[in-house]
Amino acid sequence: MSYQFNEFHWANDIKAGQYLQPATLAEALDMLASFGGKARVIAGGTDLVPSLRQRHLEVEALVDVSRLPGMDGIARQGEVVSLGGGVTHAQAASSPVVAEAAGLLAAGAGSVGSPQIRNVGTLAGNLIAGQPAADTSLPLLALDAWVTIASPQGQREEPLNGFFLGKGRTKLDPGREIMTGIHFKALGQGRGGSYQRLAKRKAMTLPMLVAAVVAGVDPGRKVFTGAAIALGPVAPTPLRAAQAEALLAGAPVSAESVAAAVEKASEESSPRDSCLRGSCDYRREMVKVFVRRGLADALAQAGCPLD
């Protein structure tokens, strides 16, 4: 047949032959390995369960990592903030550590789904889902975060810049590996951030556009020491507007340099026309508005506001 049965027919259940509850990380990795890629890690399940019901994904087993030790902590050591792989959106949104170190991440986490979703959904799950506009992926990408991944070969670290490979695909193998930590350097001292979101309604909706921005400045000289602009959904993966960022590095903090970066970020964006999330033309216009607002907001936070 020329069509997909599952596009026109729906089940009221999910299918997984086994539900496994490992006590340790090593056990969890072994369990995953024993299914040869046909098992999936489940933490909150808020992304996974709907795709299982819609049969977008078929698995033999679910491996629940939510009770593994050491997965739900939020800690700061010096400049580095670390979130465990099981940290929920609600935890991140209400954590004083996150609020102080990266308000844009707290804001992003607080924008995910609904209170009920935020109570169980995890930041790691948001990253692994590999969606182009996940509310926590974009702030983390702008923060130059890196993640710790446990695999049968051992632990490794991956920077988020480069982690996203395509829609729904990342450098983590979801059938064999587990994300155990998320890390980033705290803002402060000449670094500010901002989270900007556009949506069709005021709660519980996927964004039409998110812009997460970090700006580093030398307040004395009034120049950008660096900038990170993460955008979505404007490409198949969360996008770092690298050319716009390059324009800002070393540039004076001025309306002109911001305007140039805004135009460049818009050029770098290539959103598709979507009947649900808006046309390409509109979203490119909105990239300009939100990058401008984001930079202004981040600069103000960094102690070097645009006049």
Binding site: R201, K202, T205, L206, L276
Partner: peptide, 28 residues
Amino acid sequence: ALMEEVAIVQGYTKNLGLNNYLIPTIMD
């Protein structure tokens, strides 16, 4: 007025779920 529309492209409805067919929430 602000958000509702069954989005149909060439006969195929693109927003079958309540995640995409938006009705006002308590915030709206």
